[in-house]
């Protein structure tokens, strides 16, 4: 296949996987719509042998009012999950052929379109890998619709035809740095979803406690707050060292070779640092009484906001002010003085 055929393949694969994600979103919405009619699962003591990782299986209701609904839920859930697996595979083809489309062949991480394409894939993969371990079926509608929307924005706003990598990006440290940064971003994004759900459920629970009613539907089926908090913590704790590596080790080493300084307080670096500090604060917050739970979840979302702002905002708002901007030429700053 020629390079331009690969480019075409990549574009078609992006479109195809978006369609499949869309179907997955529909399936998951149908799943939770069916779930509205089903009574909340009854907490059962879990036997020794059945003890999983300690997360209640919110998606396996045990006290059905009607016989078909839980089955339908389960069916739609399965369909959604299978569709997501298929979509992730097509998504991968889109990414890989993007790299193959370039002459010379390169890693598909040269501009924001490609970063987003890969980042969303990492989010999906993280979700699929953790699906069983944390019984993530409650996260499915959030993940699939997030990925669908992000991919749409990516194609509509950020699309760039394939071009070779600019010189500064041609370094093995690019691969290391970008892989780490994207992986961490994926983990933080998943963690942020859990933290957001934590906040939503917490509010919802307080409301219901206040009026003494019991809730139903999607929020009722979310895991208990401590479980949400724990899953959020674990994903963040996974992401944080990777981010540390990406932003504070691989990034500076690469910057040293590319620009002659390992840390220059360039806007992109400033925001990577801010993100790091905020997530360090998140880890501290979880260990500080009075900051647990709600406040920690808010801090996590602030962290995610700085992370995304760095990714999107810096390129659009700061333009050539950042050496990491992938559009403008590098500024030449010289003031020679004649004595």
């Amino acid at each position: 296949m020629t390079h331009s055929q690969f480019e075409l393949l990549s574009n078609q694969a992006v479109a195809a996987c978006a369609v499949v994600y869309f179907l997955a979103v529909l399936a998951h919405f149908a799943q939770w719509a069916a779930g509205r009619k089903v009574e909340e699962p009854v907490e059962q003591p879990v036997g020794v042998g059945a003890a999983g990782s300690g997360t209640p299986l919110a998606a396996t209701p045990t006290g059905p009012t009607t016989i078909d609904e839980p089955e339908r839920m389960e069916l739609f859930g399965r369909v959604g999950l299978s569709l997501t697996v298929v979509a992730a595979f097509v998504h991968f083809i889109a990414m890989a052929s993007r790299g193959l489309a370039s002459d010379p062949v390169r890693v598909p991480w040269g501009n924001m379109y490609e970063f987003t394409l890969t980042g969303t894939w990492v989010v999906v993969m993280g979700y699929l890998l953790l699906y069983r371990r944390y019984s993530l079926s409650w996260l499915s509608p959030v993940v699939t619709s997030f990925v669908l929307v992000t991919l749409m924005i990516d194609v509509l706003v950020l699309y760039t035809p394939v071009v070779p990598l600019r010189d500064a990006l041609q370094s093995p440290w690019l691969i290391i740095h970008v892989v780490a940064a994207i992986t961490a971003t994926g983990a933080f994004t998943l963690g942020g979803m859990c933290s957001a759900l934590y906040l939503v459920k917490e509010r919802w629970q307080r409301k219901h406690e206040a009026d003494g009613s019991t809730g139903r539907g999607y929020l009722a089926r979310l895991p208990e707050l401590p479980v949400l908090d724990r899953i959020a913590y674990r994903t963040h704790a996974f992401g944080f060292p990777i981010w540390t590596f990406a932003a504070l080790i691989a990034g500076p080493i690469w910057a040293h070779y590319a620009w002659g300084r390992y840390w220059g307080w360039d806007p992109k670096e400033v925001w990577a640092f801010i993100t790091w500090v905020v997530y360090a604060a998140y880890l501290h917050a979880r260990a500080t009484s009075g900051w647990k739970g709600r406040s920690a979840a808010v801090v996590a979302l602030v962290g995610l906001a700085t992370l995304w702002f760095n990714f999107v905002g810096i390129n659009f708002f700061f333009g050539s002010g950042s050496q990491h901007s992938y559009a403008a030429p590098e500024p030449v700053a010289v003031v020679r003085t004649l004595e």
Partner: peptide, 25 residues
């Protein structure tokens, strides 16, 4: 915790106002 937040906040202006040491021009 509070100092960490302050550090994050204090770093922001440096990304908005052009820095002498980063780009004197």
């Amino acid at each position: 915790l509070i100092l960490l937040f302050m550090l994050a906040l204090a770093a922001i202006p440096g990304s908005v106002v052009p820095q002498e040491a980063v780009d004197s021009l």
